[in-house]
Design a protein around this nucleic acid. Structure first.
Lengths: 368, 368
DNA sequence: CATTAATCAACAGGATTGATTTATTGACAA
DNA sequence: TTGTCAATAAATCAATCCTGTTGATTAATG
């Protein structure tokens, strides 16, 4: 448990549950918290008193107009804690400071031909030092989360330096807070879970289409990482034709057909409609297949599709997936609702920052 | 919570954890329990004192021969609780009384052409009445579990009576203990989890090949049922060729090719080797495909294959699945270990009985 | 006599219960 | 219209309970 570094955060399970509820449902009065948690009003009084005293909750203006004593909704204190997120991409490395309610306060990025350990480490260290220097000394930084594709060395010989390189360990060396590292597609899922706009159920599968396709699985409101931290490897799911999801539903596939790279932001996304259309159709088939597999396996009611792609492209992809889903045999199961994610390109970096948040503030993050 | 009926069982989370550990690892001394649960020795003393007083644990003979005070291993009390299991099959309905350590104490069965609600209800009610009558009045029956295929009405017009029929509710009407109902393939998985011989990890997928193929998913040591109780619907998983797993890996498929039904026990299983061989090859392909899907989605290290089939057939099926697994693309994931189940035909009825057991005695079964 | 198992006695933390305080709406009488 | 009061709901206070921990103690063995 990397908690010696952050003695100011040591929340009990019930305190985490309260914060999690307020994060998901918005400002809530104490009575509502008692109702939904099943705890006694007195317990809620005690717990929220601590959370307010420690700066994690704010009491809002009293709400009048109903019978009985007016209620005082409690909301998350935006400065209750802050989180650093580092995202390593194929063309772009990003660093962000995110506050307790999910707003990006500082953002820096750097473009490269391909990422190397040295380059990333230097960018991150310099960036973090600069950010920390610009912050008041009492800024409460809970940790750093890193979102990175796994097996970077598989991308080509120029990436061999990543083999055996312990990025999280190296970053943690000189930082006064813990470092967490997760697959970038999983962090995109975590971001939707923690910061997402959509009202999502407690169980969903998240598909993220970026340079490669990946995903995440949320069960009972918690991101599943698996015993070998490799759950949600949706890109590796087998699909018909002896292929895997990432062979179809990846931007890299589109780039290969295009014969050129697409830029790391939406502005320069110029793809001939027929090329894009064919890619979307095939990707939709593959996405529907893995989505339905997940439903059969886990009884998932909702599948979220997001990606580092323009919104119209994403919308078309969702439409294509819905259509393909309707064509697949589904005897014995209910086809899931397929919805668009709410975070698009920012999902991975937000999710990186969500890693320390989940660790310290979500029920079951760790510790008690 | 159907617990008003069984006031004599009201175990705390830690008490359940102790029983669960002893069930899985065999007789354990208190010191080992303290070690593995993380609780203090004193807490273990208090908890086990209660469990022994209430008849759930037995103190064994002290173990000498090591340095220090000899230890007294604690084991499950066989009569700590008993469970009824009802299994509805295509040709056979079974009823069993299972004790706290998983031994079948009483077993009755009835063969029919096809199951109807009336027939099953009558068999179950008569059987339960007889069993209860034969038992001393202080036999501690915790509940009845029912293992049944879902969507029985899809099997043909003669099964229409099952549509909308609330079997669990009807059975519960005149029983002094709660009734639990689950998909039969899921109960087979539950049986392997609770009563299985094999040392299984905390996460595994269970594939059960019976009249139809089905399965179950165990995550963090708990059977996943899903928000609509339809998790582990592995038979409905899509496989290449626009089909579902149950189209290939079901005994019904073999029967269709054979042109006749196979008997509900291993003794009359006579299938020409080449017919069986072809079926096994195709089923192995399909099983490997869904197994690998599960691994990619959930990071599962072990896949268990079992079924209501003779052991040599099961062994060949596992071998075929291993071979097919090796042929599938697995970039980015680790192929799982594929092992045989330990319960074969008895898995479903044992799993039915395991439902009330899990509810009352496993951590997280329900309640506190 | 070091070592390990198990228990005793005192205590601590986090919850519950039941009584109490506070602030409001809505009904009704003046 | 306005003043009064019952009903309602939010929140807290005070006492208690339950379940665990800690630290000292006893027991049995190589």
């Amino acid at each position: 448990m990397p908690n010696d570094l952050t003695p100011w955060i040591d929340l009990s399970w019930n305190e985490r549950q309260i914060l999690s509820l307020v994060r998901r449902r918005g400002p809530l009065p104490r009575a509502a918290l008692a109702q939904t948690t099943g705890l006694s009003p007195q317990a809620i009084t005690n717990l929220t008193r601590n959370l307010i005293r420690n700066g994690f909750l704010d009491a809002g203006a009293v709400v009048r107009g109903k019978v009985g004593q007016p209620s005082t909704p409690l909301s998350l204190a935006p400065d209750g804690a802050q989180f650093l997120g580092l995202k390593i991409g194929r063309r772009l490395v990003e660093l962000a400071l995110v506050d307790f309610v999910g707003r990006v306060k500082i953002h820096r990025q750097e473009i490269y031909g391909h990422p190397t350990p040295d380059r990333v480490l230097t960018f991150a260290r310099n960036g973090i030092a600069t950010i920390l220097g610009s912050l008041p000394p009492d800024a409460r930084i809970a940790g750093l989360g890193v979102a990175t594709p796994f097996r970077l060395w598989d991308w080509g010989s120029e990436m061999a330096g990543w083999h055996g390189f312990d990025l999280a360990g190296r970053l943690a060396e000189d930082l006064p807070f813990p470092v967490f590292l997760e697959n970038d597609a999983s962090t995109a899922c975590a971001a939707e879970l923690i910061f997402g706009r959509s009202a999502l159920p407690r169980d969903f599968v998240h598909l993220y289409v970026a340079h490669f396709a990946g995903g995440g699985v949320v069960l009972d409101g918690r991101l599943r990482v698996g015993p070998r931290r490799n759950a949600g490897a949706l890109g590796s799911m087998p699909i018909p034709g002896g292929r895997q999801l990432l062979d179809c539903a990846s931007v890299s596939t589109l780039e290969a057909r295009l014969g050129r790279s697409l830029p790391p932001d939406d502005s320069g996304w110029q793809v001939p409609p027929d090329t894009e259309g064919r890619w979307i159709a095939e990707a939709g088939d593959a996405l529907a297949f893995v989505a339905l597999s997940a439903v059969a396996l886990l009884d998932i009611p909702v599948v979220v599709i997001d990606g580092a792609i323009p919104r119209p492209t994403r919308a078309a992809l969702v439409e294509a997936t819905r259509a393909a889903m309707a064509r697949l045999p589904a005897a014995g199961i209910d086809r899931p609702e397929i919805i668009e994610g709410s975070l698009a390109r920012s999902a991975r970096i937000l999710g990186a920052a969500a890693l320390p948040l989940a660790h310290f503030f979500e029920p079951g993050g760790a510790l008690t």
